[in-house]
Nucleic acid binder design. Structure first.
Lengths: 227, 227
DNA sequence: TCAAAAGTGTTAAGTTTACACCCATGA
DNA sequence: TCATGGGTGTAAACTTAACACTTTTGA
């Protein structure tokens, strides 16, 4: 590896990643937050984070940090942005790259989550968070909302098969607004890649609700999505 | 400043900023690119960039770097994202945060631009660029297009007063598509913050075209914008 | 007088919204 | 048999898209 003088005269920084981890449970959108049982800011609420290492890309660091907490790999993640205020971390200067992740709460490793002292917290009932983590969450929510209206990322939060009521409740949680049931179902019916299965979910009603699933192969044929 | 062991065991990185600088001239959208007369990658095309310093935020570094090239401060800038592949810069590991900037070409310091060996290049006719700079530009264009359709950022690229034909040509350049003149003007007419002035521009037609200006105070009253 | 850009309305198509009742079933 | 959530269609309001001619004036 060549080193030019050019680089040497410049300072280096700790670079961290912080994860805004979305989950969906019982009609509510949750975030996985740490009640920190370690330094710094012990006892306070924070996002799951970690430092970028020499041998990994920033994206890979985010995946690693997410996997350390949840045990999951191949999770949908998207970069939110970089937070680079000089004193955002009062301990040391740290530049942090925020990512949001969407996952199915039931697939996460409950033992790991417990070991980190992490909790799923309703997104409408968030505690105060350290540093600029609340700001990161705000940006992540906006980005996620926009993406969810234009791309089929909602299925990352749901089980493989789901009812239309579940799907609607998820969108209502994302948008923070109610949606008309008939209009919603009309739009879904137009999306041929949201397929009826022959299974019925009886867990929330006596009549039972048809289970649907997302067919990504069919989606890839034209990639039109709009809710 | 307190140092915890926590930080010390982690590596540090060079952090750079790269600027995607948009300008608008004669109906065409341009980017300000460097034909590098310095190391590394001398002789190749690149974005204007620089390293984050100890005493400045990442956002401030982007502003400084932009100002070094253009002489301009108070320029509209937005973060595009962070590029953190391990070997994106073959010289040394550098994590780079990309920003896009919108400015009026005529306000930039031509002498400085020349000294840096920088050129305004039509966005549809870009050269090959070093590292991941083409990817940065791609993301910046997408982001800018979306923003321009939802917020009045287009005026950053225009002189204080402008004709409706200029404004339409700008949007056509941003969207890479033609727009119906009557429909466009109808939409503009609904935006009370795009105000007629009593001036006429005679530079592009014998008849002359009315000059308009953007009134930010009026805009701030309801902040609705959609083109 | 004519070339060249500025300016101006209407209609059809498509999209979005609002809205209320019947269905199936287990308790 | 009834309470509960599942499932279904239509009409009005609004938005978007398509489209062509007249005006002004300097050369």
């Amino acid at each position: 590896m060549t080193s030019y003088n050019y680089y040497l005269q410049n300072p280096k920084f700790y670079v961290a990643v912080d994860c805004i981890i979305f989950g969906f449970n019982e009609g509510e959108l949750d975030l996985l937050l740490l009640k920190r049982n370690f330094q710094p800011a012990q006892g306070e609420w924070s996002l799951m984070g970690g430092f970028v290492q020499e041998n990994e890309s920033v994206d890979d660091a985010a995946k690693r940090v997410l996997s350390e907490l949840t045990g999951l790999t191949n999770v949908y993640m998207e970069q939110v942005g970089t937070f680079g205020q000089v004193s955002r971390d009062p301990g040391e200067r740290v530049i942090s790259v925020a990512y949001y992740a969407l996952l199915n709460i039931n697939e996460s490793d409950k033992e790991l989550v417990e070991r980190y002292n992490a909790f799923w917290v309703n997104i409408n009932d968030l505690p105060e968070l350290i540093f600029d983590h609340s700001q990161m969450i705000g940006q992540a929510r906006n980005l996620m909302r926009i993406k969810a209206s234009n791309a089929p990322i909602c299925f990352e939060l749901l089980p493989k098969s789901f009812t239309l009521t579940q799907l609607q409740k998820l969108y209502e949680a994302i948008y923070g607004d109610t949606i008309d049931k008939r209009n919603f179902r009309k739009r879904i019916a137009e999306m041929k890649y949201i397929e009826k299965t022959d299974k019925i979910d009886k867990s929330t009603s006596k009549r039972g609700a048809v289970l649907y699933r997302f067919n990504n192969k069919v989606y890839c044929k034209n990639k039109k999505f709009k809710i």
